[in-house]
């Protein structure tokens, strides 16, 4: 580990998606993107749906879609805990689009026991994935 790098971990309920040495990372915080460099002070933040970007020590760029969750920086380790995350390259555009449509429909249907918050979150997630995959 060089002095200017830190460990980035992306953990979701299904797996530990990533564990890598990076030079810098940017993730979507609740009030806009937050950037982190090595030896950042101890911090806990909320994350929203959006793009997590990191640059590895080898100069490689990593891109992940993350969703609502938590990010914690301490002892030079940035841990991003999120309900769901995926590598941008592995997003299936068709699937993302379908999920977005489904979410739209659910929101517009007049189902009585609809969990509005959950449906909105699903829609936001789906749209985000679609947007990022299309780039």
């Amino acid at each position: 580990m060089t002095d200017s790098s830190f460990t980035l971990r992306v953990v979701c309920p299904q797996e530990i998606l990533l564990e890598a040495e990076v030079e810098s990372a940017r993730f979507p915080g609740e009030d806009g993107a937050l950037g982190v460099l090595a030896h950042h002070t101890t911090m806990v933040a909320l994350t929203e749906s959006g793009l997590l970007r990191a640059r590895t020590s080898q100069g490689e760029n990593l891109e992940f879609v993350v969703h609502s969750g938590f990010a914690e920086m301490r002892d030079n380790v940035l841990t991003v805990l999120t309900q769901a995350a995926e590598n941008v390259e592995s997003i299936d555009l068709d699937r993302a689009r379908k999920a977005a449509e489904r979410a739209q429909e659910r929101l517009h249907s007049s189902e009585s026991n609809l969990d509005l918050v959950r449906a909105r979150a699903a829609l936001r997630r789906a749209l985000m994935r679609e947007m990022l995959a299309r780039k």
């Binding site: 009030d31 937050l34 101890t42 806990v44």
Partner: peptide
Amino acid sequence: LSEPLLEP
């Protein structure tokens, strides 16, 4: 966590 920076 010693006085962590909290956001929000």
